[in-house]
Design a protein around this nucleic acid. Structure first.
Length: 416
DNA sequence: CGTCCACTGGAATCAAGGGTCT
DNA sequence: AGACCCTTGATTCCAGTGGACG
């Protein structure tokens, strides 16, 4: 790979608007986190004793997406490690349970952040949970430190796996002689404690609770200005852009992440167009792009069966009156699956897949009763043409589109 | 007011596919 | 090689259930 490559014009082209793109990334942790002073102080006060090898209380952090939970915790963690000269007293471990979502992989991940010797790492599969439990307790105790383990998006894992590992993690201390473990759980589900936790864990995990309220409009403007100041060259932002980004996101639950995404993508679009300024129009484009990207990503990762179910909903002959029910979908589904020579799932399973699509936000499904005529899910789809085209152009349906012209009239796929 | 439809929601279970361990 | 283990997707079974209809 030499510099003289197909990327040449990228290397030569200088950005005229964005000076430092990284600053607009949501993963960037700024020097100073605005409007979160009190939360930071709370966490510092709780976690601080670990510097003297005393065990901090467990913390549960609650707040909606984009309210700075992860950023604040990681920021405090970073500062804590800085303060712990020589790495002797405490150790900060971060695990995102949305990405790492099985009991095994969570424990695997935690242990391998601790184990430095590559020969002693735990294999990524194959061991029994018992064995991993024992190994991790041994490893932790050997270190003779206070471990602060952050479990981000903790509710996701609870939903899927129950609370076994968390029970383990909150009770390891009884088996440790030298080290201590304390847990920081992060969730965006405000009813998490009541809905998901069994009483025995509830009291342990929720020793301290810290709430992260959504950012207000003014706070979002502050945050955006703060980053824009260093991310852009001077005078490339039309004055109303920041307010516009902030307003869009404030409406929608004060999500700073979303506001930053908007600003960054708007800037990218302007840059690519070689426009001299970033305007609210760019922000509008960015909004559309974000939405489409989100759906693209979801559809890409759907299993074949889910794709067929989704398509069955969209293409359902009965869908012209706005909604379909599970039975209708299942009929269409068996049709399509048959034509694609794929195994046909039971209706029970298809109902589950429909529920999953609902949770992903691709479709709307709510249970409705028709009295004597039974009870079913009322499903409606509200997808843009772009998204539907995207689904139709999926590899899975390539052969199908040709064949389907024979009998089904509803499958008028338009590629252009 | 009770019935009864057409599913839902939950739990138990299976099979296949990834692997380790002895 | 055979015993075990975890994860994922699917199956099977079954006890609910909201509310229009009779």
């Amino acid at each position: 790979m030499t510099g003289d490559s197909i990327f040449k014009h990228y290397l030569e082209k200088k950005n005229t608007l964005i000076k430092d793109r990284g600053i607009l990334q949501t993963t960037y942790v700024p020097e100073q986190l605005l409007h979160r002073e009190s939360q930071i102080n709370d966490i510092v006060d709780i976690v601080g004793p670990s510097l003297n090898k005393e065990q901090p209380s467990n913390i549960l952090i609650i707040g909606k997406t984009g309210t700075g939970k992860t950023a604040v915790v990681n920021y405090v963690g970073k500062e804590l490690m800085k303060e712990d000269a020589g790495n002797n007293n405490c150790c900060y471990i971060y695990v995102n349970c949305e990405v790492i979502d099985t009991p095994y992989s969570i424990l695997y991940n935690i242990s391998n952040q601790i184990i430095t010797d590559p020969n002693n790492k735990i294999p990524f599969t194959g061991w029994s949970l018992d064995k991993i439990f024992n190994e991790i307790t041994k490893v932790i105790d050997n270190e003779n430190k206070v471990f602060i383990i952050v479990l981000d998006e903790i509710d996701k894992s609870f939903k899927k796996n129950g609370d076994d590992i968390f029970y383990f993690l909150t009770t390891v201390n009884t088996m440790l002689k030298r080290s201590r473990v304390s847990i920081i759980g992060i969730t965006n589900n405000s009813k998490f404690t009541e809905e998901c936790l069994s009483p025995k864990i509830r009291s342990r995990l929720g020793e301290e609770k810290i709430i992260f309220p959504p950012y207000s409009l003014d706070q979002l403007i502050d945050i955006l200005n703060d980053r824009a100041k260093i991310a852009f060259y001077p005078d490339v932002l039309e004055p109303s852009v920041i307010n516009y980004c902030a307003a869009v996101s404030a409406q929608d639950s004060g999500d700073a992440r979303k506001a930053l995404d908007l600003l960054r993508i708007a800037a990218d679009i302007a840059e690519r167009n070689s426009d001299s300024m970033i305007t609210p129009a760019h922000v509008d484009f960015a909004r559309q792009k974000i939405e489409l990207d989100a759906f693209t990503e979801i559809i890409k990762t759907l299993t074949d069966q889910s794709k067929i179910v989704l398509r069955s909903i969209i293409d359902n002959p009965k869908s012209e009156n706005g909604y379909v029910n599970t039975g209708d979908v299942y009929v269409t589904y068996t049709n399509i699956a048959n034509q694609l020579y794929l195994p046909i799932l039971t209706q029970r399973r298809v109902a589950d897949l429909i529920s999953e699509l609902d949770m992903l936000g691709i479709i709307n499904a709510r249970v409705k009763s028709f009295g004597r005529k039974g009870r079913t899910k009322e499903i409606n789809v509200n997808l843009s043409k772009d998204v539907i085209n995207l689904l139709n152009s999926d590899d899975l349906f390539q052969n199908f589109s040709h064949k389907s012209s024979v009998s089904q009239t509803t499958f008028d796929t338009d590629f252009n």
